[in-house]
Design a protein around this nucleic acid. Sequence first.
DNA 1: ACATCCACCTGGGTC
DNA 2: CGACCCAGGTGGATG
Lengths: 193, 193
Amino acid sequence: MALMLALETGDGREDAGGLAEGNQARAGGRERMFEKVVTPSDVGKLNRLVVPKHFAEKHLPLPGAVARAGGTVLCFHDARGHAAWRFRYSYWSSSQSYVMTKGWSRYVRDKRLAAGDTVAFCRDGTRLFIDCRRRSRGATPPAVPALLPQAFFVPQVQHMAPRVEEPGGRCLRLFGVNLQLRAEPVVLLDFQL
Amino acid sequence: MALMLALETGDGREDAGGLAEGNQARAGGRERMFEKVVTPSDVGKLNRLVVPKHFAEKHLPLPGAVARAGGTVLCFHDARGHAAWRFRYSYWSSSQSYVMTKGWSRYVRDKRLAAGDTVAFCRDGTRLFIDCRRRSRGATPPAVPALLPQAFFVPQVQHMAPRVEEPGGRCLRLFGVNLQLRAEPVVLLDFQL
DNA sequence: ACATCCACCTGGGTC
DNA sequence: CGACCCAGGTGGATG
């Protein structure tokens, strides 16, 4: 097991250099969309990940719809389908920022994300993947790489009526179409939050 | 530039002793409602002014409605209409206190309010006025009185649907002050006690 | 009670 | 320097 260094604060400074885009595919057909070095706030008590607007609007689904609707739920699976997370993805008009909220804090806990670590969002066709890796030590390659890959699958997008929790009907957006689901979306591998 | 001492933390304790009520009218038909010696928290990073409950419920509008609704916006003008501030006025049920929140920090900056200074709320009929003055030095009259009178005009009370940002609101800077302009009627005068 | 989530807010930095 | 980001906050609702 990767040891679990704390180091939760860092310097708290955001830096466009902390973001990277366009790294080439690592394996299979996966292409890097973007990644972010998480800030103390991203892994702290605010229970949300700020997705830089530039990347959100370029890569994440339906920015317009997300902004207009109350938000969206994305279902995340790991590469082998052994884990899944569902995050709410929404737009905060007051700060004009895109955020992952509900479910994000659990991911942070489970993966023991700390400030300075990196989350990387990739995709392979319709599949989306997320990796997280420990912050590299200094300029040298990480002493303990502790790569924690997992799939970020399924552009399952549920438009949410503002603050109306989905009772029975659900909307699944898949391959660019909206599907109305009756009981559970249950994308395969339904790891319930 | 007046130095802008931080003092943002202080002890965070509110003190009813810093309040006075019932000073007689100063000019025209203006009657003093109440005043408060602002605390470090009132001028610090909390970006809010605590209005002592006693005065709030006695003088400020619609305590019940304010408590029930999401809050209210009060539009503040100076005596000549050359300055205006809009403060959100609301009730925090968690602390059971009435507060001015949004807009207050701007007022603090513009007036360079510091802990120990006094803000006084007056009214003349439906008009409300606010003065602020520097803390008196010791027991002697203030070495630098620095009286900064300004009208606290128009009890324009807008009940806020929970979080609807004014779309048409614009800010005009004139003579060094910010004027809030709105598409809707600027004067309602429906101040209800 | 406590943790989480939600919508909103603001200052500092950057472009 | 104005406009925009976004990190770091808030109170309140929810379960």
